[in-house]
Amino acid sequence: MPSIYDFTATSLTGEAVPLKRYEGQVLLIVNTASACGFTPQYRGLEALQRAYAPKGFAVLGFPCNQFGAQEPGTADEIGAFCSSKYDVTFPLFAKIDVNGADAHPLYRFLKGEKTGLLGSAIKWNFTKFLVDRTGHVVSRHAPTTTPEALRKEIEALL
């Protein structure tokens, strides 16, 4: 049975990152944007990262410009924004598509594992997928679900 560990993604700095690197960790995979009404969720995502990383948890951020062109920046601009505005320490990856013919294979997998309000399509920025320690998608959460609201679910998986 496939898991997220079967995929590779490019980091914001251009490094090919096999997701197998995160094997054994609980993950929250999020499509992000720097100019979105939900952008302040970076603060909550970083709080989760800092609280639970020592217990084997990581947030993985995937910038996406498919929704209202709310992530127009370059990799350097995205990194600088996340660092200076929200002190983000969790891994950020290169900008990707999450819907359509050019959707990243990881996102095709995630959407196939857990559908949402619009079927498999991602509705907007900051859709969240929670993945257990074995690499399987446990749940999918709408952009309106705050990171803080996921604490109990994350703690149960840790």
Score class of each variant (00 low, 15 high):
residue 52 Y to W: 13
residue 25 Q to R: 14
residue 36 C to G: 04
residue 77 E to H: 08
residue 29 I to T: 01
residue 29 I to G: 02
residue 37 G to K: 09
residue 132 D to Q: 06
residue 96 I to H: 05
residue 68 G to H: 09
residue 40 P to K: 11
residue 114 K to F: 07
residue 23 E to L: 05
residue 35 A to N: 09
residue 122 I to D: 01
residue 61 G to E: 04
residue 60 L to V: 04
residue 16 A to C: 03
residue 27 L to W: 00
residue 23 E to C: 06
residue 86 Y to S: 07
residue 7 F to G: 02
residue 39 T to S: 06
residue 112 G to H: 11
residue 119 G to Q: 15
residue 140 R to I: 15
residue 41 Q to I: 14
residue 109 F to V: 02
residue 55 K to M: 06
residue 17 V to D: 01
residue 127 T to D: 12
residue 64 C to E: 11
residue 103 A to N: 04
residue 118 L to F: 13
residue 42 Y to Q: 11
residue 110 L to P: 00
residue 60 L to Y: 04
residue 96 I to W: 01
residue 151 R to N: 10
residue 155 E to D: 15
residue 66 Q to T: 03
residue 34 S to H: 08
residue 66 Q to L: 06
residue 133 R to W: 09
residue 2 P to V: 11
residue 35 A to Q: 15
residue 127 T to L: 05
residue 149 A to G: 03
residue 148 E to G: 05
residue 94 A to T: 11
residue 154 I to Q: 04
residue 136 H to K: 15
residue 76 D to Y: 07
residue 97 D to T: 05
residue 14 G to N: 13
residue 39 T to Q: 06
residue 65 N to K: 15
residue 99 N to Y: 07
residue 9 A to R: 00
residue 55 K to T: 09
residue 116 G to D: 15
residue 122 I to S: 05
residue 155 E to M: 11
residue 31 N to W: 01
residue 88 V to A: 11
residue 85 K to F: 02
residue 131 V to E: 01
residue 20 K to Y: 04
residue 105 P to H: 09
residue 127 T to F: 00
residue 52 Y to D: 00
residue 134 T to D: 11
residue 147 P to Y: 07
residue 103 A to I: 06
residue 2 P to W: 01
residue 72 P to Q: 13
residue 95 K to N: 10
residue 157 L to G: 00
residue 125 N to T: 07
residue 88 V to Y: 02
residue 59 V to Y: 00
residue 150 L to M: 05
residue 70 Q to D: 13
residue 122 I to V: 15
residue 145 T to G: 05
residue 13 T to I: 10
residue 120 S to M: 12
residue 67 F to K: 02
residue 42 Y to W: 09
residue 88 V to L: 07
residue 140 R to N: 10
residue 109 F to T: 01
residue 90 F to I: 07
